[in-house]
């Protein structure tokens, strides 16, 4: 790590850029071919499109029922994040501040259950929750995300709240603040950094999740973006012009989210993984 920018560093830089381009090649192929006619995709896969075919996007947008799928994904992601942040921050706060055995036991159960892979739960989950009316409903799915996400979310909040001094809360209680008031007015604003991390990690997971919504939501009108892409790709296999335009449409929201929140995302992911 020399301070000077030497000829050697320049060589490394060129190599690194080439490697970066290799990483981007798949995106190039998908983007450029999504704007070609079917015949041109077959004959000229590597070249740039000769005439831009925006019809591909218009067709894919309609066939995917894109607006509906996007709205579904958005509602599910936002609602799940809200319930996860509200209920898990409250739970973690109480578990930290109640110095009793039961707090430790409950916390350990939440943490230990993070080990359970989804495949070990999904069969009874789908077969037994139908009796609770949670299947084929967006709200049912949101409750499921609360259940599945609670372990990780409580774990992250728990670690953060432990570092917050209790004196502030005690002063507020003496001033006659209710426990809810203490939590929402004093503690919750202090949790902002970890809330950002939690929301980013959960958003990426929920937005990209395929299997759970696929098992829970049966109505075509409830499909999320990954589900809609899955059915679309299955329906138009080898009809690359449509399939690729649909694929690009599915990727775009993620890229926008990434580039607008890049700093937070990288920070959130690094801190989330190390804990």
């Amino acid at each position: 790590m020399d301070k000077k920018y030497t000829g050697k560093t320049f060589t490394v830089e060129i190599l690194a850029i080439l490697l970066g381009l290799v990483f981007l090649v798949p995106f190039y192929y998908v983007f450029s071919n999504s704007l070609k006619t079917f015949a041109e995709i077959l004959t000229n896969t590597s070249a740039l499109p000769s005439v831009l075919q925006f019809e591909n996007y218009i067709n894919a947008f309609k066939q995917l029922n894109y607006l509906k799928a996007f709205t579904n994904s958005l509602i599910i992601t936002v609602a799940s994040n809200v319930v996860l942040v509200v209920f898990c921050s409250m739970a973690a706060y109480m578990l930290v501040r109640t110095k009793k055995k039961i707090s430790n036991v409950i916390f350990m159960i939440f943490v230990a259950a993070m080990v359970i892979p989804f495949q070990s739960i999904m069969i009874p989950l789908i077969k037994t929750t139908s009796s609770l009316g949670l299947l084929n409903s967006v709200w049912g799915l949101v409750i499921m995300y609360l259940g599945f996400g609670s372990g990780m979310t409580i774990f992250l909040y728990h670690g953060f709240i432990k570092g917050i001094p209790v004196e502030l809360e005690e002063a507020a209680i003496i001033d006659g603040c209710t426990p809810f008031g203490v939590f929402w007015k004093i503690v919750f604003p202090l949790l902002k950094p970890i809330t950002v991390t939690v929301v980013i990690l959960n958003s990426l997971w929920i937005w990209n999740d395929f299997l759970l919504p696929q098992l829970v939501l049966q109505d075509a009108s409830l499909r999320t973006i990954p589900m809609a892409t899955f059915f679309f790709f299955g329906q138009y296999t080898k009809q690359w012009d449509l399939a690729l335009a649909g694929l690009v449409l599915s990727i775009i929201p993620l890229l926008i989210f990434f580039f607008s929140m890049q700093k937070h995302i990288i920070k959130g992911i690094t801190s989330g993984s190390i804990k």
Binding site: M90, Y93, L95, I102, I121, M122, T129
Partner: peptide, 28 residues
């Protein structure tokens, strides 16, 4: 009561969605 109010909602969802299916799954 306060403890239940704060911890209850998350734990209930967690129990219904994760714990119960996991243990019935072992039986099945």
């Amino acid at each position: 009561g306060l403890f239940t109010l704060f911890v209850g909602p998350a734990f209930l969802a967690f129990a219904v969605i994760v714990l119960i299916p996991f243990f019935t799954g072992i039986y099945y």
